[in-house]
Design a protein around this nucleic acid. Sequence first.
DNA 1: CTTGACTCTATAGTAACTATAGACACTACC
DNA 2: GGTAGTGTCTATAGTTACTATAGAGTCAAG
Lengths: 143, 143
Amino acid sequence: MKIGELAKKSGCKVVTIRYYEKEGLLPTPERTEGNYRLYGPKDLERLDFIMHCREHGMRPSEIRKLLLFRDTPQRDCTWVANLVDAHIADVDARIASLEHLKKHLERLRGTCGGEREGEVCGIMRSLDDRSCCASCGRQSILR
Amino acid sequence: MKIGELAKKSGCKVVTIRYYEKEGLLPTPERTEGNYRLYGPKDLERLDFIMHCREHGMRPSEIRKLLLFRDTPQRDCTWVANLVDAHIADVDARIASLEHLKKHLERLRGTCGGEREGEVCGIMRSLDDRSCCASCGRQSILR
DNA sequence: CTTGACTCTATAGTAACTATAGACACTACC
DNA sequence: GGTAGTGTCTATAGTTACTATAGAGTCAAG
């Protein structure tokens, strides 16, 4: 099949498929006489795998490692489990960071006193003086 | 004060300060005879404001709007509150998305059967056949 | 034979910075 | 006065994971 069909079947964009090829996630495919890329079912499987990893929030660098493992499977898959564990920990940290950020934003939101004559907006004042962050001390909100 | 001192006082890197200037978040400062940028307390306040917005996860485009408001304050701050509300909603959506992703990852993690002779790693198999995503149907995990 | 859809390559753009190279300015010390 | 070290200057390129664009070639149908 040609690249367009592979794209349709996998749900991956044509340009992205070519990008993955250039990045070494997909093998360089055969070509037709007219220089069109030619793919087989193996390629679709591999691309599905990639898409699935991507849906799980994995970056190409991680996917690359998993593909390598897929290409030369070993008995010991400990590090695969470790990779997923690390990924879960990372997601956890991001959630915690966002929860914290949300608290700050809600506190910030609460400083708005509505439309008052002659007064400066409470949110702007909080952004100026960091009063909405007082309870956290000086450490950073994010990350 | 020179750019290094402003960087130290604000906690922002020197290169980032220059970047903010180029992006129009900071005004073009005066220069010394030797062509060094010269900043005053107003600049530090403005940069603090920017840093504070950044810590709240706001992007330069949003910060730019807030700075404009700061420069020409109006009585009605409704849209400032709306901006913060939209920001909170966005953070909420990201948290929900990550929670969902986490569930998937934990399910994926659970498919690992440990080190077994001659068998393919359960995680790899799940990544191949999407079995860990069966319960969600075909819709995307992320976003 | 021409129209339209598909494909090709190469390059540049995105966000929000970060890193690098090579030159100039300034201060301290000998 | 010379020089070593630090700070600053500009301009350009790199980062991540793609996305968009330009301009040309390929192929099937009418």
